[in-house]
Amino acid sequence: MARHAPWALVVLLSGAFVLFGADFDMTYVIPRRLLRLGAMLVGGVCVAWSAITFQTLTGNRLLTPAVMGYEALYLLLQALLVLLLGSAGVVLLGAQGNVLLAASVMFGYSWVLHRWLLREGQHNLYFLLLVGLVLTLLLGSLTQFVQLKISPGEFSLLQGVSQTSFNRVQGAQLLVSALLVGALALLNRNQLNTLDVLALGRDQARSLGVDYPRVLRQQLALIAALVAISTSLLGPTAFMGVLVANLAYRLATSYRHRLTLALGSALAIVVFLIAQLLVEHLFNYKTTVGLLINLLCGGYFLVLLTRQRSHR
């Protein structure tokens, strides 16, 4: 029962989001909202999928890929684009260009990072996390520096892309993202059982015949791709993955990725929908979706920390 509730909620909330106060305006309001809904669906899947996979690889339920510095890199890239091209240039580059650029930069980052850190057959994920931490701080300082250099008008443009929001999605971009996610899902279909085994830990997975280095490489590349898609579609989502993944584990009462990934995706979409509905109808745009999600998920993260069940 609990397994289907989130999907029912997705349908219900989507209906409310698309139709509420739209007066069946098929020419503008509803198509616009459908586009945003599409962004939530695709983005939600990416957020949940990347977070749950990352938690399985690290064997830790308090982490999201954001700690590896992906989102910090994305923000830096956006700030640099505004600084170097100006607002006109960013508009010229267009959403597609921006997405492709962001995706390739993040992919390159992930490739260099893993290439450099995982050579010599050493796969110490904790070390990887510390490096991610340093890079996050470093990229953050660089971004702040760039932000100081740009004009207030350009800053507000930058502010638009550096927070979770569904408003900048464009049709073609959404289509490409959805196709990409679909292709990745197809490619990854056979890996779900392997992920289940990886959750037992590196050594146990290896002694059960998993080619650990290869799977780790594949899954980290997959995570980079998913994070690139979701950040360029919706902006950074920071803790959201932690919230979604942990709720999914709780509701699924199973370790199987087949279940947790599906549930997590539904939950992410629900969170997006609720935040958007609240901003539109309760707060009257006095706050932003990004801030609301950050607060909600950040708060949950702190609660989760205090509730950590200690083993034995």
């Binding site: 064997g59 059982n193 289940d196 085994v197 037992l200 050594d203 002694s207 015949g209 998993v210 370790y255």
Partner: peptide
């Protein structure tokens, strides 16, 4: 079988034992 395998998974005994079949059936 390694020492001190930390499991932070909520698994039933049966499900854990089933993992032993992974090399044969892939899950």
């Amino acid at each position: 079988l390694r020492q001190a395998t930390e499991l932070n998974l909520r698994l039933r005994v049966e499900e854990l034992v089933e993992f032993g079949r992974f090399p044969y059936c892939g899950g």
